[in-house]
């Protein structure tokens, strides 16, 4: 990751900017929304337990400390995926999130909540995400 950032530094013009978006170290949260209420049902784990996100933070800190970039601005936002059912989100994760661990208990619990007579309901995956702007020095 540090090598990638060093290459980015070489590719940028002097005073160019790097925008980085990557998930936070915290595991994404599953929620079921029933009507107006949202119920937490579990967390999404990955096979490497999110080690790569921590390494990403360390790599950025490394190039900042070495004076390749300065931090101009940092923030967070929630990236939310919406599905009509627990099964739909489960299949999406199998197809698209290769290192996700499919916790069947979590999905079974979520599926039970879909038995509510409330018609307005959905399954949500909330990913807390970092965004930052760095200036090339």
């Amino acid at each position: 990751m540090v090598h990638a950032l060093e290459k980015v530094h070489r590719l940028l013009k002097a005073d160019g900017e790097l925008i980085d978006i990557h998930p936070m170290f915290d595991p994404p949260a599953f929620e079921v929304r029933v009507g107006e209420k949202k119920f937490p049902v579990g967390w999404l784990r990955e096979t490497d337990d999110y080690e790569e996100y921590e390494l990403a933070d360390e790599a950025v800190n490394d190039v900042v400390q070495r004076g390749l970039f300065s931090i101009e601005r940092k923030g967070t936002f929630s990236f939310i995926t919406h599905a009509d059912s627990a099964a739909e989100l489960r299949q999406y994760l199998i197809d698209e999130w290769k290192d996700a661990i499919i916790d069947e208990i979590t999905f079974a619990h979520a599926a039970e909540m879909f038995n509510s007579i409330e018609r307005d309901k959905e399954m949500i995956l909330r990913v807390s995400t970092n965004i930052a702007r760095y200036r090339s020095l």
Binding site: M1, A4, L5, V8, R10, L11, L12, K13, A14, G16, E17, L18, I19, D20, I21, H22, P23, A56, A59, V60
Partner: peptide, 12 residues
């Protein structure tokens, strides 16, 4: 040193 902006989209 060509680019004004490099955008790393969930790639780091």
């Amino acid at each position: 040193g060509l680019f004004d902006v490099v955008f790393m989209s969930w790639s780091l």
